[in-house]
Design a protein around this nucleic acid. Structure first.
Lengths: 231, 231
DNA sequence: TCAAAAGTGTTCACCGTACACCCATGG
DNA sequence: CCATGGGTGTACGGTGAACACTTTTGA
């Protein structure tokens, strides 16, 4: 039998999730936060997190944590960074690895988030969070911006059918800047990954705007060939 | 006293360093690897690593590990990613966080690397490494490419005085493609972060090429203002 | 009929890229 | 004097950015 690393110190490893959603009602980018009902910092807002178990990878843990809060499977997840300041958690030395998740805000389990005392916050109105969680959120937005400018990441956040305006609004929220609709449409179309449907969405205007759907096949093709995506 | 997280499982956390250097003799990008003189996989090539101690951050650990191998202080270090496959280390469950380091290959302590049975390998000729270390190296190169195309990172790898040709060769090694020297010079000069010296380096040609030096002040300024660096 | 959002092309400036010749020097 | 690498400028095409009017339809 192979000898173990006997003299090394073990530490607690946590996983925290920065969960992004795009609220189609008010067209705003939001993050899902929980009100802690346990010590320390009980009653304060926090990212959803948990400890890494011995039988799972970090991504497994993030998936489990995400599922326990939203009821969702198959969520877009990307590892961000490990945080390791000695006293970041006042209870005990804990390092935390963050993942950010992109979910369709309409699809999550409303009961579950109630049970977890969770709530969606506008990105632009993020409350003070426990520990180093605000730093984590800031790092996540930065990464989200980078990803969104490199890949058509936004699709994870929208329903299956969406309008060009919704897609543009989403990008504007992520990038935190206004975009020109003619240039935006042109650019998106040039990637040739959308399918224009015959249906219109009439909620947002009298004229109504055409719905689009994401062409998975063309998209996967592009991913393989490295995209030239750049917003 | 605050209660501890009693029922949670702790794990071993390692830090592994991908150490890049630019060899000015043969103008090649290299990485520093060690031959393990301990089990498991004794005698195999590996990244330099170690376990995280209770009283240090991940970056502290990376700094300590790097110093123990190279004798260098104040090295450029950037966290890459956490690796957490259950059996990645066959001895015991260990998650590893990688850092990549950029060092001036001329400045390291030759005795120390001998003592650690370490050796510089051409990037293009990286041997098979233990565990998931090859994957770590590949991820590190990818990140290095991104950084180098975004910031003038190459300076960390060169001596204080260097020629435009050396800088270009370095970028060619990192990007793994030939660059046009007129365009390269033009681009670098446009950033206005170099200081052209009166001296020439005559080693590489009869005419000799002018030496440059990095203008720290202008550079810091640029960093603050977000650079427009793009190679 | 009017208000409100959707849809659609063109022009211009700038940047990245391609490309070739002369210069200085040591041997 | 010649071989070797160093240094320099221009022309072209493509892409990003700015910009305004017409269409549809519910109220």
């Amino acid at each position: 039998m192979i000898q173990k690393y006997k003299n090394e110190e073990k530490v607690l490893v946590a996983v925290d999730c920065i969960i992004f959603g795009f609220d189609q009602q008010d067209e705003e980018l939001k993050i899902l936060l929980i009100k802690r009902n346990f010590a320390p910092e009980k009653g304060k807002w926090s990212l959803m997190g948990g400890f890494l178990h011995a039988d799972e990878t970090l991504k497994d843990a993030a998936t489990r944590i995400l599922h326990s809060l939203t009821g969702l499977h198959n969520v877009y997840l990307e590892q961000l960074k490990a945080y390791s300041e000695i006293d970041r958690d006042p209870v005990e030395r804990t390092i935390s690895v963050t993942y950010y998740a992109l979910i369709n805000i309409e699809a999550h389990d409303v009961e579950l988030i109630k049970k977890n005392s969770a709530r969606w916050f506008k990105m632009s109105n993020c409350p003070k969070l426990i520990f180093d969680h605000n730093e984590m959120v800031n790092d996540a937005i930065e990464r989200l911006r980078y990803r969104a400018s490199t890949q058509p990441i936004g699709f994870e956040l929208l329903p299956v059918k969406f309008t060009m305006r919704q897609l543009q609004k989403l990008y504007e929220e992520i990038m935190d800047e206004k975009l020109d609709k003619r240039n935006f449409t042109k650019k998106i179309n040039s990637f040739n990954i959308l399918e224009k449907l015959k249906e219109k969405n009439k909620k947002s205007s009298k004229k109504g705007s055409f719905l689009y759907k994401f062409n998975q096949q063309k998209y996967q093709q592009k991913i393989k060939n490295g995209f030239g995506f750049k917003i």
